[in-house]
C-alpha cells in the first residue's frame, strides 16, 4: 500500500532522513517509533506530497508521490503533528469545512467517524481552541477521516496527551484498522509500539530496524535483569560503578541491567549490592520491552 524506496532528504546542511526504505501492507497498522529529530515528520510530509525528497521514490496505493500528488491528496487522510484545525471555529464548523474541502458531506461518511465523533458531539458548538487535548485529537482524527481515506497518516497524534486519552486513541485506531484503512502512525512513546502490527525504529534520520514488535523483542538476545532496592538512586550509581555492569537504566520501579558480555549471574549482582548495604534488594530475570530493544540499538549506533 505504501512503498518507500531509498528516500533521503536534507534541509540546507541538516540531513533530515537518510536512505529510508520500507513497505506498509494494505490494512496494516504501521508505527514509526523514535524521539524528536528522528525524521518521522519529514518522512510523513514527503509521503503527504508536502515536501520533495532529494533522492529515492515512493508510491502510495500505486501512485507516485511526486507525479500523482493530486491523487494522493484526495486519497489520504492526514493529521499533522501540531493541532492543525481552526481554533476559532466550532467543532461542527471545522468538520463541515473539511467535508466541503474534500467535496463530501458529514452525513455521507458519518459511518466511519461515528464512533469517534459521538464522543465530542456534545461539544459541537464549542470552539475547537477551547477543547481539551484529548478531544482535540478526536476532532482532528474525525476531520482526517471525513473523506473516507484509504490511507491514514498520523504524525504523533498522542504527544502531550495523557495516558487515558492515549489509550482511547489507540483503541480508535484499532477500530479503523478493522474497517480496512491502512494506518501509518508515528510516536515517541515506546510502549505504543506494542500496539502496532509492525514498527520501524528510527533515530537521527535512519531506520534502525523494522519488524513486528514481537520479533523485535524476541530478537533481543542479551540477558536482562530487573533490580530494585529501597534507594533507587544510590542503586543506579552503585551499579554503574560496578566493573561487571554493562548498562543500568531506570525502568519504572526497577532498573534494567545488563552485565558485561552477558556472563554475569544474578547472584553476582546480588552479592555486590549486598556488600553495598542495599536493603529490600530484589534481583531477577526479566523479559525485554521494546524500549530495551531501542536503547540497545541506540547504543550500537553511538559506538
Amino acid at each position: 500500500m505504501i512503498s518507500i524506496q531509498h528516500i533521503s532528504k536534507s534541509y540546507k546542511e541538516v540531513q533530515a532522513i537518510t536512505d529510508i526504505s520500507l513497505e506498509v501492507q494494505k490494512g496494516e497498522l504501521f508505527g514509526l517509533i523514535g524521539p524528536d529529530g528522528a525524521g518521522k515528520t519529514t518522512l510523513m510530509r514527503i509521503l503527504m506530497t508536502l515536501l520533495i525528497q532529494d533522492e529515492g521514490t515512493a508510491t502510495m496505493n500505486g501512485f507516485d508521490i511526486i507525479k500523482d500528488y493530486k491523487k494522493i491528496r484526495n486519497m489520504v487522510g492526514y493529521m499533522p503533528g501540531r493541532f492543525s484545525l481552526y481554533q476559532d471555529l466550532t467543532v461542527e464548523e471545522n468538520l463541515n469545512f473539511f467535508a466541503t474541502v474534500f467535496k463530501t458531506t458529514v452525513s455521507e461518511n458519518y459511518d466511519l467517524i461515528r464512533d469517534i465523533y459521538i464522543q465530542i458531539e456534545p461539544f459541537k458548538k464549542r470552539l475547537a481552541g477551547k477543547l481539551s487535548g484529548g478531544m482535540k485529537q478526536k476532532l482532528a482524527l474525525s476531520c482526517a477521516l471525513i473523506h473516507k481515506p484509504e490511507i491514514l497518516i498520523l504524525d504523533e497524534p498522542t504527544t502531550g496527551v495523557d495516558a487515558v486519552s492515549r489509550k482511547e486513541f489507540w483503541e480508535m485506531l484499532k477500530n479503523l484498522q478493522q474497517k480496512g484503512i491502512t494506518i501509518l502512525v508515528s510516536t515517541p512513546y515506546m510502549d505504543e509500539a506494542m500496539l502496532c502490527n509492525r514498527v520501524a525504529l528510527m533515530q537521527k534520520g535512519k531506520v534502525l530496524d523494522i519488524d513486528t514488535p514481537r520479533n523485535l523483542v524476541d530478537g533481543y538476545t542479551r540477558k536482562l535483569y530487573a533490580i530494585r532496592s529501597n534507594d533507587m538512586h544510590r542503586l543506579i550509581l552503585d551499579l554503574r560503578s560496578y566493573e561487571k555492569t554493562d548498562s543500568a537504566y531506570a525502568f519504572g520501579q526497577y532498573l534494567h541491567v545488563t552485565g558485561k558480555d552477558d556472563e554475569v549471574e544474578a547472584t553476582e549482582f546480588e552479592n555486590y549490592l549486598m556488600r553495598k548495604n542495599h536493603e529490600d534488594l530484589e534481583v531477577h530475570d526479566i523479559a525485554p520491552t521494546i524500549e530495551d530493544v531501542f536503547m540497545e540499538l541506540l547504543q550500537d549506533t553511538i559506538v
Partner: peptide, 13 residues
C-alpha cells in the same frame, strides 16, 4: 503559522 496551511495543502484544494 498555525499549521492549518499544511492540512489545506494536503487536501485536494
Amino acid at each position: 503559522e498555525l499549521g492549518t496551511m499544511e492540512v489545506l495543502l494536503a487536501s485536494p484544494l
